[in-house]
Amino acid sequence: MNKTTTPKGAPRRRAKRHFWSGWPEGSRQRLFRLAPRGTALVCLSVFIGLRLLVGSVTTQIEESKAQYARVLPLVEEILTLRAQRGDLAHLPPDKAVWRIIDDLSIEQNLISMRETGLGEDDVALQTTLTGLPLNTLARFLNDLRDRASLQTRDCALTRNPDDPRLSDAHLVLAR
């Protein structure tokens, strides 16, 4: 059997290996002369475009950092003033916590509340709550900060063993 014929005797067409195989010699030479230049030009364009993009993003990041540095002291001052003007700030910590617990109606979730020493002269309040939804716990913590000027010095949050959708919290509160 001949290599250029099919079994039926018809001549077989040879498949083109590359798209330029059928081009005239001058066109092929021009393609091979211009292809590396075109590839280099495309790569250079992509590199320059990415470099400009990175430069503008870096500038935006630096501007955001500068704005954050200007705003941060103001935010801290606002939070401090808000905590000082709380309606329960004049009460002792245990009475303020009881008032917040009553306002949120979470008395049934309170397990224990007792005073403890935090340092030499600092007195803190240990509070343990169980079976609280996360949004109620967040409201409780916000009220402690905003209304009673209390800070959470230590906090242990765990998932409630009876209902995994609820949380248990052990808090150490102080001014």
Score class of each variant (00 low, 15 high):
Thr128Tyr: 00
Leu31Asn: 00
Lys3Ala: 04
Val42Gly: 02
Ala89Lys: 09
Val123Gln: 09
Ala10Val: 12
Arg33Tyr: 04
Cys43Pro: 01
Leu44Val: 05
Gly38Arg: 01
Glu77Met: 13
Pro11Leu: 05
Phe19His: 13
Leu31Ala: 02
His170Val: 12
Asn160His: 15
Gly38Met: 01
Thr158Arg: 08
Asp122Thr: 06
Ala124Ile: 05
Leu129Ser: 03
Glu62Val: 12
Leu171His: 03
Leu72Asp: 13
Gln126Pro: 03
Arg33Ser: 05
Asn160Val: 15
Ala40Pro: 00
Ala169Ile: 13
Ser56Ile: 13
Ala124Trp: 03
Ala138Gln: 02
Ser149Gly: 12
Leu132Pro: 03
Thr39Lys: 05
Asp162Lys: 14
Cys43Leu: 09
Asn135Ala: 03
Glu120Asp: 10
Leu157Thr: 11
Ala169Asn: 14
Gln126Gly: 01
Ile100Leu: 07
Thr6Gly: 07
Val75Trp: 06
Trp98Phe: 05
Leu79Gly: 08
Asp122Ala: 10
Gln67Ala: 13
Ala15Asp: 12
Thr4Trp: 12
Gly49Val: 03
Leu171Ser: 10
His18Pro: 02
Asp163Leu: 10
Leu110Gly: 07
Trp20Ser: 01
Ala35Cys: 04
Val57His: 14
Ser167His: 11
Arg13Glu: 08
Thr5Met: 05
Pro92Glu: 14
His90Trp: 13
Asn135Glu: 04
Gln60His: 11
Leu72Arg: 15
Thr128Pro: 00
Lys3Ser: 04
Leu104Asp: 01
Pro24Gln: 07
Cys155Thr: 05
